[in-house]
């Protein structure tokens, strides 16, 4: 098993090296920095971006937007998920809204958001409309899948509603959510950045991506993509640590 994992890692490293090699080869072949920048110029751009005094402030702003938006989506998904599971009315009320969000092109909703909201709120809203349905469905599924026999036991022992929510519903929701948490966090980050590209808040990864595009600095765009990939990886690790903690320490 250990050998297998080791081999897996070796293959993953090899595939990354092949991709970088292909990139270097193609950029050399095309020889136009605007279309496909070289590895070297991308690295120079990356160093320049990181050395910029406002770099951490830009990252922090995007992360804060992403985090607040995500927490808002999560809290709303949990509350509405619980309410939908106990009230047919709320479930039916939310159903068309979720259908609307999933069938109307995201871009159309973003354009409306650009008209209605200020440019600081648009990125969070964009993240919200993508992530909320995923989290809400996951919460609802968790509640529906709660073992009916455990619920029957709790009701026979006359356990109060608050304890049932705190000790059965919430842990079940978090166990179910842990499987979508990392991907939802990453989708949210990507959508917040997309929202920043369109709404251009003062500080944000998306605003800088847009700026690099305007100046036709493709190496800068590539450098920002590398930074986003790095942040995604860090979020992925954080998600897996949270998942491990929730499973091992308390809930499973």
């Amino acid at each position: 098993m250990k050998n297998f994992i080791l081999k897996d890692r070796q293959f993953s490293l090899l595939s990354k090296l092949i991709l970088i090699g292909l990139w270097a080869f193609l950029s050399h072949l095309i020889d136009k920095e605007v279309i496909l920048p070289s590895v070297r110029s991308t690295l120079v751009s990356l160093i320049n971006i990181v050395k910029d005094p406002s770099f951490f402030s830009i990252i922090l702003h995007s992360l804060i937007r992403s985090l607040f938006g995500f927490l808002f989506s999560l809290l709303l998904a949990i509350s509405l998920g619980i309410l939908s599971s106990v009230s047919k009315f709320i479930y039916s009320l939310l159903e068309p809204i979720l259908n609307f969000l999933s069938s109307v092109p995201t871009m159309a909703i973003i354009i409306l958001a650009l008209i209605w909201l200020n440019n600081e709120l648009v990125p969070m809203f964009v993240g919200f409309i993508m992530v909320f349905p995923i989290l809400y469905q996951s919460v609802l599924k968790a509640i529906i899948n709660i073992d009916r026999k455990i619920m029957e036991m709790a009701s026979l022992y006359k356990v109060d509603r608050l304890s049932i929510i705190k000790d059965i519903y919430i842990p079940s929701i978090f166990i179910n959510l842990s499987s979508v948490l990392t991907s939802a966090l990453n989708i949210n980050l990507k959508m917040v950045i997309a929202g920043e590209v369109l709404s251009q808040p003062k500080l944000g990864i998306g605003s800088n991506l847009q700026m690099e595009k305007m100046y036709l600095n493709t190496a800068g765009v590539f450098a920002w993509i590398i930074i986003i990939l790095f942040i995604s990886k860090v979020l992925g690790y954080m998600g897996s640590i949270l998942k491990k903690l929730s499973k091992e320490e308390k809930w499973k």
Partner: peptide
């Protein structure tokens, strides 16, 4: 009640499973 299945809550320890029904 004792059922055909143990009906213990998986994410609660033995102590917490017992405390769950005693709380009220």
């Amino acid at each position: 009640f004792v059922f055909q299945e143990d009906r213990l809550i998986e994410w609660k320890s033995v102590r917490d499973n017992m405390a769950f029904i005693l709380k009220k």
